[in-house]
Design a binder for these strands. Structure first.
Lengths: 228, 228
DNA sequence: TGGTTTGTTGGTCGTTCGATAATCAAAAGG
DNA sequence: CCTTTTGATTATCGAACGACCAACAAACCA
């Protein structure tokens, strides 16, 4: 079986990689099928035959992206012995990925489709789901640190700290996109890690207790309290 | 002079606000002229007559956005007495802005056009310039803190710390976009401010010295050092 | 009132969008 | 050799795109 019919004249893996490069550079909506067909070296009809719709292709591209560019930060979280080293190395691996010599200087997962036309809402939510998974992955690593005994924090802390470092990761992409080089990102990472000891010290007062406290405490417009 | 000819039947300020709302929701490329004309209640030709091209309209929209949504964080930086309070309040004002009840949950400046088609490169650089100004504004406030005497840091530190908090601001937009609520953003801000004392303490060793050190120190792929 | 000036309407320009149908090409099975 | 199966190509679909123009409408000045 299998090898009946006319064999394919292009390599789907190569074509997928070429599609990845283009989506990475221009985002989801900024990349047209004609652009893709040209970059992949095939007709647009062949794209449909092999990969399905534009959205299907993009989802396959994101799977490839996650398996390649997404792996170093994930591996850092997984393999570093201490929780602190895991988070620190994850940030540095991220900085490495978004300052590569021959790739766009940002994370595709974050900037390929943050906003856009209404009809592409599913694509945006698809990416948002993966990003929310990132937060969970970090949080799980922190929980493992508690189990391992190298981290002391409550559950609410874990969620807040994980979200904090996810926020830094995502902010780094904007920085790199706007021209910050690797050394400048490293400086940001050093600053971000400066919070670690405070966040993970056992003292419950004024430090680690970050989340949950509620919004109500501070009014939204405290500046000018309605002069009549 | 001035009032010759047929008077305008729509209010340009109102129309600009309506255009702002649509650009905010869908981004630059995700918003078509037909969408705009419908939302503004006028024909697309009237848009050209009053505001110029789509790009011209967008630039005017961003000016309005900066004067409204951008003002609270800027005012926090300007008016808070201490540098620490200024940065902290800037972050909170940002969090307020990106969790408004009847506006999209992110900063338009950051997510309206991070990537896109090649022909819209000028729009992306226009936004990037404004974002880079943000970094400068924060840095200037830190420098003022040094002058005021409530902050001790070197020049390289100021750049790194300013970039760090700019990174947090930008990361918060992704968080809010992905569904984080005001309380969760507050928790992230608390974490981000936990770095403050360490970053601004006079001790030069291992803490504040963030920037400039150079990239070369750490190899990019230290994990698996080429087995054979 | 008539002429001038300006804004608005409606329509159309050529292009491009994502997607599909029809046709041709190349390999394997019988 | 001829059918079957599968892939690639070309042409094209209807819709929407940004941009623009001519015709109409409404206000001013004289």
């Amino acid at each position: 079986m299998a090898t009946r019919g006319r064999p394919r004249t292009f390599d789907p893996d190569t074509a997928l990689r070429q599609a990845l490069d283009l989506f990475w550079e221009r985002g989801y909506e900024g990349t047209s099928l004609n652009d893709l067909a040209q970059a992949m070296g095939i007709a647009s009809a062949s794209i449909y035959a092999c990969f399905g719709s534009k959205e299907d292709l993009f989802r396959k591209v994101m799977a490839l992206y996650g398996a390649t560019s997404g792996e170093p930060p994930r591996r850092a979280l997984r393999e570093q012995p201490t929780t602190r080293a895991a988070v620190h190395e994850m940030l540095r691996a991220t900085a490495d990925q978004i300052t590569g010599a021959d790739t766009p200087h940002y994370c595709m997962l974050i900037l390929a489709a943050p906003t856009g036309a209404v009809e592409n809402h599913p694509v945006r939510e698809f990416l948002a789901d993966i990003r929310r998974d990132q937060h969970t992955t970090i949080k799980d690593r922190l929980a493992r640190g508690v189990t391992d005994g190298d981290l002391t924090a409550s559950g609410a802390d874990l969620d807040a700290i994980a979200r904090y470092y996810a926020t830094v990761v995502q902010g780094l992409s904007i920085q790199a996109r706007d021209g910050a080089d690797r050394a400048e990102l490293e400086a940001v990472i050093t600053c971000a890690m400066a919070a670690w000891d405070t966040l993970t010290s056992p003292t419950p007062a004024s430090t680690g207790r970050a989340g949950a406290a509620g919004t109500g405490a501070r009014p939204r417009s405290p500046r000018r309290p309605a002069t009549r």
